[in-house]
């Protein structure tokens, strides 16, 4: 159903980014941190935070007016 190609559907999903960022913080809060993994997650976290900020700046709300023929939908 969603048309691919030139439509910017491949864009970052804000909710997913934000949730992943929160997960990373939680991960750090659980203690017992492996330094290598910590660094990886840290970089990923910074990247996610950046993506979220960019995403907030760029998107416009889109309103689609759906036309329903009410007799038929029921």
């Amino acid at each position: 159903m969603p048309q691919k190609k030139s439509t910017p559907e491949k864009k970052v999903d804000f909710g997913q980014c934000y949730a992943e960022l929160e997960q990373i913080i939680d991960w750090f809060d659980t203690g017992e941190i492996d330094l290598d993994e910590g660094l990886k997650k840290f970089e990923r976290g910074l990247d996610l935070a950046q993506k979220c900020r960019e995403r907030l700046a760029e998107v416009e709300t889109r309103v689609n007016e759906l036309k329903l023929k009410f007799g038929e939908t029921l």
């Binding site: 960022l21 913080i25 750090f28 941190i33 910590g38 840290f42 976290g45 910074l46 935070a49 900020r53």
Partner: peptide, 15 residues
């Protein structure tokens, strides 16, 4: 997001 980023940096430093 800022606060999460801040916490992230803090946690990393702490680590």
């Amino acid at each position: 997001i800022e606060s999460l980023r801040h916490r992230l940096v803090g946690r990393m430093e702490q680590t």
